[in-house]
Design a protein around this nucleic acid. Sequence first.
RNA 1: ACCGCGAUCGUCCAACGGCCAGGACGCGAGGUUGUGGCCCUCGAGAUGCGCGUUCGACUCGCGCUCGCGGUCCCA
Length: 423
Amino acid sequence: MPIERPRGTNDYGPEEMARRRAVEGLLRDAAHRFGFREVSTPTIEHLDLFTRKSGPGIVEELYAFKDKGGRDLALRPEFTGSIVRFYLSELRNLPKPIKVYSVGNVFRYEEPQKGRYREFTQFNAEIIGAPALPGDAEVIALAIECLRSVGVREVRVRVGHIGMLRAFLRVPPEDQGKILHWLDKRNFPALKNELARLRLETLETPLRQYIELKGGPDVLDTGAKVLAGVGTEGFEYLKALAKRLEVYGVGHVTFDLGVVRGLDYYTGMVFEVDSPNLGAEKQVMGGGAYSLAEVFGGDPVPQTGFAFGLDRVVLAAEAEGVKLPVPRLDCYVIPIGESMRAKSLEVLQLLRRAGVSADVDLLGRGPSKNLDYANAIHARFGILVGETESKKGRVAVKDLDSGKQEELTLEAVIANALQRPKA
RNA sequence: ACCGCGAUCGUCCAACGGCCAGGACGCGAGGUUGUGGCCCUCGAGAUGCGCGUUCGACUCGCGCUCGCGGUCCCA
Protein backbone atom coordinates (compact mmCIF):
# COMPACT_ATOMS: atom_id res chain seq x y z
CA MET A 1 0.00 0.00 0.00
CA PRO A 2 1.52 3.31 -1.02
CA ILE A 3 1.96 5.97 1.60
CA GLU A 4 -0.26 8.95 1.06
CA ARG A 5 0.21 12.56 1.96
CA PRO A 6 -1.24 13.53 5.32
CA ARG A 7 -4.67 15.08 5.08
CA GLY A 8 -4.67 18.73 4.11
CA THR A 9 -1.05 18.86 2.96
CA ASN A 10 0.35 19.43 -0.51
CA ASP A 11 3.16 18.37 -2.79
CA TYR A 12 4.36 20.95 -5.29
CA GLY A 13 6.04 19.88 -8.53
CA PRO A 14 8.72 21.87 -10.37
CA GLU A 15 6.32 24.00 -12.39
CA GLU A 16 4.14 24.98 -9.48
CA MET A 17 7.07 25.48 -7.17
CA ALA A 18 8.70 27.83 -9.68
CA ARG A 19 5.52 29.89 -9.70
CA ARG A 20 5.32 29.96 -5.91
CA ARG A 21 8.93 30.97 -5.57
CA ALA A 22 8.44 33.70 -8.13
CA VAL A 23 5.56 35.09 -6.12
CA GLU A 24 7.54 34.81 -2.93
CA GLY A 25 10.43 36.70 -4.51
CA LEU A 26 8.15 39.52 -5.63
CA LEU A 27 6.70 39.76 -2.13
CA ARG A 28 10.12 39.92 -0.52
CA ASP A 29 11.17 42.63 -2.95
CA ALA A 30 8.07 44.62 -2.10
CA ALA A 31 8.74 44.29 1.62
CA HIS A 32 12.33 45.39 1.17
CA ARG A 33 11.28 48.39 -0.91
CA PHE A 34 9.16 49.36 2.08
CA GLY A 35 12.03 48.99 4.50
CA PHE A 36 10.83 45.78 6.12
CA ARG A 37 13.48 43.24 7.08
CA GLU A 38 13.05 39.51 7.27
CA VAL A 39 13.06 37.60 10.53
CA SER A 40 12.55 33.94 11.23
CA THR A 41 11.04 32.24 14.25
CA PRO A 42 10.59 28.54 15.09
CA THR A 43 7.93 26.43 13.49
CA ILE A 44 7.17 24.97 16.91
CA GLU A 45 6.39 27.10 19.95
CA HIS A 46 5.18 26.53 23.46
CA LEU A 47 1.48 25.86 23.45
CA ASP A 48 1.04 28.66 25.99
CA LEU A 49 2.07 31.24 23.43
CA PHE A 50 -1.11 30.56 21.49
CA THR A 51 -3.49 29.81 24.33
CA ARG A 52 -2.52 32.95 26.20
CA LYS A 53 -3.24 35.01 23.12
CA SER A 54 -6.37 33.31 21.86
CA GLY A 55 -7.77 31.31 24.76
CA PRO A 56 -7.71 27.58 25.57
CA GLY A 57 -10.27 26.80 22.89
CA ILE A 58 -7.60 27.38 20.28
CA VAL A 59 -6.02 24.02 21.11
CA GLU A 60 -8.72 22.29 19.11
CA GLU A 61 -7.42 24.01 16.01
CA LEU A 62 -3.75 23.45 16.61
CA TYR A 63 -1.31 20.69 15.99
CA ALA A 64 -0.49 20.42 19.67
CA PHE A 65 1.63 17.69 21.23
CA LYS A 66 3.99 16.81 24.02
CA ASP A 67 7.65 16.39 23.20
CA LYS A 68 9.83 13.71 24.76
CA GLY A 69 10.56 15.97 27.70
CA GLY A 70 6.86 16.35 28.42
CA ARG A 71 6.71 19.95 27.17
CA ASP A 72 3.46 21.13 25.64
CA LEU A 73 4.27 22.39 22.17
CA ALA A 74 2.36 23.33 19.04
CA LEU A 75 3.06 23.97 15.39
CA ARG A 76 2.57 27.66 14.78
CA PRO A 77 -0.83 28.57 13.30
CA GLU A 78 0.38 32.09 12.42
CA PHE A 79 3.32 34.40 13.01
CA THR A 80 2.04 37.15 15.23
CA GLY A 81 2.44 35.31 18.52
CA SER A 82 6.02 34.36 17.72
CA ILE A 83 6.88 37.87 16.61
CA VAL A 84 5.53 39.33 19.83
CA ARG A 85 7.47 36.79 21.87
CA PHE A 86 10.61 37.59 19.89
CA TYR A 87 9.98 41.28 20.33
CA LEU A 88 9.63 41.04 24.09
CA SER A 89 12.78 38.99 24.50
CA GLU A 90 15.12 40.65 21.98
CA LEU A 91 13.68 42.70 19.18
CA ARG A 92 12.69 45.53 21.47
CA ASN A 93 16.33 46.54 21.72
CA LEU A 94 16.37 47.47 18.05
CA PRO A 95 15.81 51.08 17.00
CA LYS A 96 12.14 51.89 16.59
CA PRO A 97 10.12 51.51 14.57
CA ILE A 98 10.68 47.83 14.04
CA LYS A 99 9.51 46.71 10.62
CA VAL A 100 9.75 42.98 10.04
CA TYR A 101 8.27 40.34 7.81
CA SER A 102 8.31 36.55 7.66
CA VAL A 103 7.43 33.94 5.11
CA GLY A 104 6.90 30.37 6.11
CA ASN A 105 4.57 27.48 6.64
CA VAL A 106 1.88 27.54 9.28
CA PHE A 107 -0.39 24.75 10.49
CA ARG A 108 -4.03 24.64 11.43
CA TYR A 109 -5.97 21.56 12.38
CA GLU A 110 -9.09 22.28 10.39
CA GLU A 111 -11.16 20.64 7.72
CA PRO A 112 -9.34 21.05 4.42
CA GLN A 113 -11.09 22.42 1.37
CA LYS A 114 -10.15 23.95 -1.91
CA GLY A 115 -7.53 26.61 -1.19
CA ARG A 116 -7.56 25.80 2.53
CA TYR A 117 -5.02 23.37 3.79
CA ARG A 118 -3.73 22.20 7.14
CA GLU A 119 -0.25 23.30 6.19
CA PHE A 120 0.15 26.40 4.08
CA THR A 121 2.54 29.22 3.39
CA GLN A 122 1.89 32.57 4.93
CA PHE A 123 3.44 35.99 4.47
CA ASN A 124 3.32 38.20 7.55
CA ALA A 125 4.49 41.75 8.17
CA GLU A 126 4.42 43.90 11.30
CA ILE A 127 5.39 47.32 12.45
CA ILE A 128 6.09 47.63 16.16
CA GLY A 129 6.58 50.88 17.95
CA ALA A 130 5.28 53.40 15.43
CA PRO A 131 2.41 55.75 16.25
CA ALA A 132 -0.93 54.43 15.05
CA LEU A 133 -1.63 56.62 12.06
CA PRO A 134 1.67 56.40 10.19
CA GLY A 135 2.11 52.76 11.17
CA ASP A 136 -1.35 51.70 10.04
CA ALA A 137 -1.02 53.55 6.75
CA GLU A 138 2.38 52.06 6.03
CA VAL A 139 1.12 48.55 6.71
CA ILE A 140 -1.94 48.90 4.53
CA ALA A 141 0.19 50.40 1.79
CA LEU A 142 2.51 47.41 1.92
CA ALA A 143 -0.40 45.00 1.82
CA ILE A 144 -1.65 46.62 -1.36
CA GLU A 145 1.83 46.79 -2.81
CA CYS A 146 2.24 43.05 -2.23
CA LEU A 147 -0.74 42.33 -4.43
CA ARG A 148 0.21 44.88 -7.04
CA SER A 149 3.74 43.60 -7.28
CA VAL A 150 2.61 40.12 -8.20
CA GLY A 151 0.40 41.65 -10.84
CA VAL A 152 -3.00 41.63 -9.17
CA ARG A 153 -4.81 44.76 -10.35
CA GLU A 154 -8.25 44.37 -8.91
CA VAL A 155 -7.83 45.16 -5.27
CA ARG A 156 -10.39 46.39 -2.79
CA VAL A 157 -9.53 47.54 0.70
CA ARG A 158 -12.09 47.73 3.45
CA VAL A 159 -11.05 49.55 6.57
CA GLY A 160 -12.80 49.61 9.90
CA HIS A 161 -11.98 50.34 13.50
CA ILE A 162 -12.64 48.20 16.52
CA GLY A 163 -11.92 50.87 19.08
CA MET A 164 -15.30 52.55 18.70
CA LEU A 165 -17.18 49.33 19.18
CA ARG A 166 -15.18 48.46 22.24
CA ALA A 167 -15.80 51.91 23.69
CA PHE A 168 -19.50 51.61 22.95
CA LEU A 169 -19.82 48.29 24.75
CA ARG A 170 -18.67 49.52 28.15
CA VAL A 171 -18.00 46.03 29.48
CA PRO A 172 -14.74 44.27 30.36
CA PRO A 173 -12.68 43.05 27.40
CA GLU A 174 -13.55 39.41 28.07
CA ASP A 175 -17.21 40.14 27.51
CA GLN A 176 -16.46 42.36 24.55
CA GLY A 177 -14.78 39.43 22.83
CA LYS A 178 -17.92 37.30 22.70
CA ILE A 179 -20.05 40.13 21.40
CA LEU A 180 -17.54 41.11 18.75
CA HIS A 181 -17.25 37.50 17.72
CA TRP A 182 -20.97 37.07 17.15
CA LEU A 183 -21.13 40.42 15.42
CA ASP A 184 -18.36 39.39 13.06
CA LYS A 185 -20.17 36.14 12.30
CA ARG A 186 -23.47 37.95 11.93
CA ASN A 187 -24.90 35.43 14.34
CA PHE A 188 -27.73 37.57 15.69
CA PRO A 189 -29.53 35.04 17.90
CA ALA A 190 -26.29 34.33 19.75
CA LEU A 191 -25.60 38.04 19.90
CA LYS A 192 -28.98 38.64 21.46
CA ASN A 193 -28.37 35.99 24.08
CA GLU A 194 -25.03 37.39 25.00
CA LEU A 195 -26.39 40.92 25.27
CA ALA A 196 -29.26 39.68 27.38
CA ARG A 197 -26.86 37.96 29.71
CA LEU A 198 -25.02 41.24 30.19
CA ARG A 199 -28.31 43.15 30.35
CA LEU A 200 -27.33 45.26 27.37
CA GLU A 201 -30.37 44.48 25.24
CA THR A 202 -30.73 48.10 24.18
CA LEU A 203 -27.47 47.87 22.29
CA GLU A 204 -28.64 45.27 19.83
CA THR A 205 -30.32 47.60 17.37
CA PRO A 206 -27.50 50.13 17.13
CA LEU A 207 -24.90 47.38 16.90
CA ARG A 208 -26.68 45.69 14.05
CA GLN A 209 -27.11 48.97 12.23
CA TYR A 210 -23.53 49.86 12.83
CA ILE A 211 -21.93 46.79 11.27
CA GLU A 212 -23.92 47.24 8.08
CA LEU A 213 -22.35 50.65 7.44
CA LYS A 214 -20.10 50.61 4.44
CA GLY A 215 -19.01 53.17 1.90
CA GLY A 216 -17.48 56.65 1.75
CA PRO A 217 -16.73 59.14 4.52
CA ASP A 218 -20.43 59.77 5.13
CA VAL A 219 -20.84 56.34 6.72
CA LEU A 220 -18.50 57.52 9.43
CA ASP A 221 -20.87 60.33 10.29
CA THR A 222 -23.76 57.89 10.30
CA GLY A 223 -21.77 55.56 12.47
CA ALA A 224 -21.05 58.33 14.93
CA LYS A 225 -24.77 59.01 15.22
CA VAL A 226 -25.58 55.33 15.70
CA LEU A 227 -23.12 55.10 18.53
CA ALA A 228 -24.62 58.25 20.05
CA GLY A 229 -21.45 60.23 20.41
CA VAL A 230 -19.18 57.42 21.60
CA GLY A 231 -15.83 56.95 19.92
CA THR A 232 -15.64 60.13 17.90
CA GLU A 233 -11.85 59.97 17.92
CA GLY A 234 -12.09 56.70 16.04
CA PHE A 235 -14.15 58.17 13.26
CA GLU A 236 -11.84 61.13 12.97
CA TYR A 237 -8.95 58.75 12.93
CA LEU A 238 -10.32 56.77 10.01
CA LYS A 239 -10.81 59.96 8.02
CA ALA A 240 -7.22 60.94 8.65
CA LEU A 241 -6.06 57.46 7.71
CA ALA A 242 -7.94 57.56 4.43
CA LYS A 243 -6.39 60.90 3.64
CA ARG A 244 -2.96 59.56 4.34
CA LEU A 245 -3.55 56.50 2.20
CA GLU A 246 -4.55 58.77 -0.65
CA VAL A 247 -1.09 60.29 -0.51
CA TYR A 248 0.33 56.79 -0.71
CA GLY A 249 -1.56 56.30 -3.94
CA VAL A 250 -3.52 53.41 -2.50
CA GLY A 251 -6.65 53.46 -4.61
CA HIS A 252 -10.23 53.52 -3.42
CA VAL A 253 -10.52 52.73 0.26
CA THR A 254 -13.93 51.73 1.48
CA PHE A 255 -14.93 52.27 5.07
CA ASP A 256 -16.54 49.13 6.39
CA LEU A 257 -17.64 49.32 9.99
CA GLY A 258 -18.63 45.67 9.77
CA VAL A 259 -15.01 44.53 9.63
CA VAL A 260 -14.73 43.12 13.10
CA ARG A 261 -12.08 40.45 12.55
CA GLY A 262 -13.36 37.91 15.07
CA LEU A 263 -10.06 38.02 16.91
CA ASP A 264 -10.31 39.37 20.32
CA TYR A 265 -6.91 41.01 20.31
CA TYR A 266 -7.44 43.75 17.75
CA THR A 267 -7.82 47.09 19.43
CA GLY A 268 -7.73 49.74 16.71
CA MET A 269 -7.83 49.87 12.95
CA VAL A 270 -8.77 46.65 11.19
CA PHE A 271 -8.74 45.98 7.47
CA GLU A 272 -9.40 43.34 4.89
CA VAL A 273 -8.35 43.17 1.27
CA ASP A 274 -10.45 41.51 -1.42
CA SER A 275 -9.73 40.34 -4.91
CA PRO A 276 -13.21 40.46 -6.45
CA ASN A 277 -12.30 37.91 -9.12
CA LEU A 278 -12.12 35.13 -6.60
CA GLY A 279 -15.83 35.01 -5.89
CA ALA A 280 -16.78 33.52 -2.55
CA GLU A 281 -13.17 33.16 -1.48
CA LYS A 282 -12.38 36.73 -2.40
CA GLN A 283 -10.81 37.83 0.86
CA VAL A 284 -7.07 37.51 0.44
CA MET A 285 -5.61 39.47 3.33
CA GLY A 286 -6.45 40.75 6.74
CA GLY A 287 -4.80 42.71 9.45
CA GLY A 288 -5.07 45.46 11.98
CA ALA A 289 -3.67 47.19 15.00
CA TYR A 290 -3.27 45.57 18.39
CA SER A 291 -1.43 45.80 21.62
CA LEU A 292 -0.43 42.25 22.21
CA ALA A 293 2.75 42.94 24.11
CA GLU A 294 0.65 43.69 27.18
CA VAL A 295 -1.05 40.33 26.96
CA PHE A 296 2.36 38.76 27.41
CA GLY A 297 3.31 40.98 30.25
CA GLY A 298 5.36 43.59 28.44
CA ASP A 299 4.96 47.33 28.29
CA PRO A 300 2.28 48.50 25.91
CA VAL A 301 3.56 49.22 22.43
CA PRO A 302 1.56 49.99 19.32
CA GLN A 303 1.70 47.30 16.72
CA THR A 304 0.08 46.82 13.34
CA GLY A 305 0.34 43.77 11.17
CA PHE A 306 -1.22 41.78 8.41
CA ALA A 307 -0.93 38.33 6.94
CA PHE A 308 -2.08 36.34 3.97
CA GLY A 309 -1.77 32.91 2.45
CA LEU A 310 0.33 32.50 -0.65
CA ASP A 311 -2.19 30.19 -2.30
CA ARG A 312 -4.91 32.79 -2.42
CA VAL A 313 -2.60 35.38 -3.90
CA VAL A 314 -1.41 32.95 -6.54
CA LEU A 315 -5.05 32.18 -7.32
CA ALA A 316 -5.88 35.88 -7.53
CA ALA A 317 -3.00 36.48 -9.91
CA GLU A 318 -4.03 33.56 -12.07
CA ALA A 319 -7.63 34.71 -12.07
CA GLU A 320 -6.41 37.92 -13.69
CA GLY A 321 -4.29 36.05 -16.19
CA VAL A 322 -1.02 37.25 -14.74
CA LYS A 323 2.02 35.54 -16.21
CA LEU A 324 4.56 34.94 -13.50
CA PRO A 325 8.20 35.18 -14.48
CA VAL A 326 9.53 31.71 -13.86
CA PRO A 327 13.22 31.07 -14.48
CA ARG A 328 14.08 28.99 -17.56
CA LEU A 329 17.12 26.89 -18.23
CA ASP A 330 19.47 28.97 -20.41
CA CYS A 331 21.36 26.28 -22.28
CA TYR A 332 20.84 22.62 -22.99
CA VAL A 333 24.05 21.11 -24.30
CA ILE A 334 23.72 18.39 -26.92
CA PRO A 335 26.63 16.32 -28.18
CA ILE A 336 26.48 15.42 -31.84
CA GLY A 337 27.83 11.92 -31.84
CA GLU A 338 29.49 9.92 -29.08
CA SER A 339 32.91 11.41 -29.87
CA MET A 340 31.67 14.81 -28.80
CA ARG A 341 30.47 13.78 -25.36
CA ALA A 342 33.63 14.80 -23.51
CA LYS A 343 33.76 18.08 -25.41
CA SER A 344 30.13 18.69 -24.42
CA LEU A 345 30.98 18.36 -20.77
CA GLU A 346 33.75 20.93 -21.20
CA VAL A 347 31.29 23.31 -22.78
CA LEU A 348 28.83 22.59 -20.00
CA GLN A 349 31.37 23.43 -17.32
CA LEU A 350 32.42 26.67 -18.98
CA LEU A 351 28.83 27.78 -19.26
CA ARG A 352 28.05 26.93 -15.66
CA ARG A 353 31.17 28.66 -14.36
CA ALA A 354 30.21 31.76 -16.31
CA GLY A 355 26.93 31.87 -14.41
CA VAL A 356 24.76 30.47 -17.16
CA SER A 357 22.28 27.79 -16.17
CA ALA A 358 23.12 24.80 -18.28
CA ASP A 359 22.21 21.15 -18.51
CA VAL A 360 23.40 18.26 -20.63
CA ASP A 361 22.11 14.98 -21.94
CA LEU A 362 22.54 12.25 -19.32
CA LEU A 363 20.71 9.46 -21.08
CA GLY A 364 22.84 9.14 -24.19
CA ARG A 365 20.10 10.12 -26.57
CA GLY A 366 20.54 11.26 -30.15
CA PRO A 367 20.38 14.91 -31.20
CA SER A 368 16.80 14.69 -32.34
CA LYS A 369 15.46 13.30 -29.08
CA ASN A 370 17.66 15.69 -27.15
CA LEU A 371 16.10 18.65 -28.88
CA ASP A 372 12.73 17.18 -28.01
CA TYR A 373 13.77 17.10 -24.40
CA ALA A 374 15.26 20.60 -24.43
CA ASN A 375 12.02 21.85 -25.87
CA ALA A 376 9.93 20.00 -23.31
CA ILE A 377 11.77 21.56 -20.38
CA HIS A 378 11.47 25.03 -21.98
CA ALA A 379 15.18 25.66 -22.35
CA ARG A 380 16.09 28.88 -24.15
CA PHE A 381 18.98 27.62 -26.26
CA GLY A 382 20.09 24.26 -27.56
CA ILE A 383 23.88 24.17 -27.70
CA LEU A 384 24.86 21.64 -30.34
CA VAL A 385 28.43 20.50 -29.97
CA GLY A 386 29.56 18.95 -33.25
CA GLU A 387 32.89 18.11 -34.77
CA THR A 388 32.78 20.60 -37.63
CA GLU A 389 32.01 23.62 -35.47
CA SER A 390 34.25 22.42 -32.69
CA LYS A 391 37.26 22.52 -34.99
CA LYS A 392 36.53 26.19 -35.55
CA GLY A 393 36.20 26.78 -31.81
CA ARG A 394 32.50 27.29 -32.12
CA VAL A 395 29.21 25.64 -31.34
CA ALA A 396 25.86 25.65 -33.09
CA VAL A 397 23.33 27.59 -31.07
CA LYS A 398 19.66 27.03 -31.70
CA ASP A 399 17.17 29.49 -30.29
CA LEU A 400 14.45 27.13 -29.20
CA ASP A 401 11.72 29.74 -29.39
CA SER A 402 12.38 30.97 -32.91
CA GLY A 403 14.14 27.90 -34.30
CA LYS A 404 16.93 30.08 -35.68
CA GLN A 405 20.39 28.62 -35.51
CA GLU A 406 23.81 30.19 -35.76
CA GLU A 407 27.43 29.33 -35.17
CA LEU A 408 28.96 31.18 -32.26
CA THR A 409 31.98 31.14 -30.02
CA LEU A 410 31.36 30.13 -26.46
CA GLU A 411 32.00 33.69 -25.34
CA ALA A 412 29.20 34.88 -27.55
CA VAL A 413 26.91 32.15 -26.23
CA ILE A 414 27.61 33.23 -22.68
CA ALA A 415 27.01 36.88 -23.48
CA ASN A 416 23.73 35.96 -25.14
CA ALA A 417 22.56 33.73 -22.36
CA LEU A 418 23.39 36.20 -19.64
CA GLN A 419 21.07 38.67 -21.26
CA ARG A 420 17.81 37.62 -19.74
CA PRO A 421 15.34 40.22 -20.95
CA LYS A 422 12.57 39.01 -18.71
CA ALA A 423 12.00 35.32 -18.38
C1' A B 1 -16.45 18.41 14.02
C1' C B 2 -21.05 17.77 10.83
C1' C B 3 -23.94 16.94 6.02
C1' G B 4 -23.67 15.50 0.86
C1' C B 5 -20.85 13.65 -3.40
C1' G B 6 -16.73 10.98 -5.09
C1' A B 7 -12.12 7.55 -5.60
C1' U B 8 -9.82 2.86 -12.18
C1' C B 9 -2.47 3.56 -15.16
C1' G B 10 1.42 9.78 -13.44
C1' U B 11 -3.07 12.85 -15.57
C1' C B 12 -7.93 12.92 -17.92
C1' C B 13 -11.67 9.56 -19.28
C1' A B 14 -14.06 4.40 -20.75
C1' A B 15 -16.10 -0.72 -19.33
C1' C B 16 -18.39 -4.96 -17.08
C1' G B 17 -21.46 -9.24 -11.03
C1' G B 18 -17.44 -13.74 -14.67
C1' C B 19 -14.27 -12.34 -20.85
C1' C B 20 -7.17 -9.88 -22.02
C1' A B 21 -9.99 -3.65 -17.43
C1' G B 22 -9.91 0.03 -23.09
C1' G B 23 -8.38 4.98 -24.98
C1' A B 24 -5.99 9.82 -25.01
C1' C B 25 -2.06 12.79 -22.93
C1' G B 26 2.45 12.12 -20.43
C1' C B 27 6.91 8.73 -19.66
C1' G B 28 10.72 5.11 -21.95
C1' A B 29 12.85 2.60 -26.50
C1' G B 30 13.20 2.45 -31.76
C1' G B 31 12.17 4.51 -36.68
C1' U B 32 16.60 8.72 -36.98
C1' U B 33 25.07 8.02 -33.59
C1' G B 34 24.38 16.05 -37.42
C1' U B 35 19.03 18.97 -35.77
C1' G B 36 13.12 20.04 -31.75
C1' G B 37 7.80 21.23 -31.36
C1' C B 38 4.64 16.65 -36.41
C1' C B 39 4.30 11.47 -37.45
C1' C B 40 4.72 5.80 -37.06
C1' U B 41 5.88 1.20 -34.16
C1' C B 42 6.84 -0.99 -29.61
C1' G B 43 7.12 -0.91 -24.11
C1' A B 44 6.23 0.12 -18.84
C1' G B 45 2.02 1.71 -16.02
C1' A B 46 -4.36 1.25 -12.49
C1' U B 47 -9.38 -0.75 -9.97
C1' G B 48 -7.11 3.48 -2.39
C1' C B 49 -7.33 0.02 2.20
C1' G B 50 -10.22 -3.56 5.07
C1' C B 51 -14.52 -6.46 6.04
C1' G B 52 -18.98 -8.49 4.14
C1' U B 53 -22.76 -10.33 0.24
C1' U B 54 -21.77 -13.91 -3.83
C1' C B 55 -19.95 -19.98 -7.00
C1' G B 56 -17.49 -15.40 -8.65
C1' A B 57 -16.67 -8.20 -6.67
C1' C B 58 -13.21 -3.08 -10.02
C1' U B 59 -18.67 -3.26 -10.14
C1' C B 60 -23.26 -4.33 -4.61
C1' G B 61 -23.15 -3.09 1.09
C1' C B 62 -20.50 -1.34 5.52
C1' G B 63 -16.12 0.84 7.81
C1' C B 64 -11.52 3.46 7.14
C1' U B 65 -8.39 6.71 4.32
C1' C B 66 -8.08 10.63 0.94
C1' G B 67 -10.39 14.39 -2.24
C1' C B 68 -14.44 17.83 -3.66
C1' G B 69 -18.80 21.01 -2.29
C1' G B 70 -21.31 23.06 1.87
C1' U B 71 -21.90 24.10 7.44
C1' C B 72 -18.53 25.48 11.34
C1' C B 73 -13.97 27.90 11.80
C1' C B 74 -10.41 31.00 9.59
C1' A B 75 -5.14 33.74 14.43
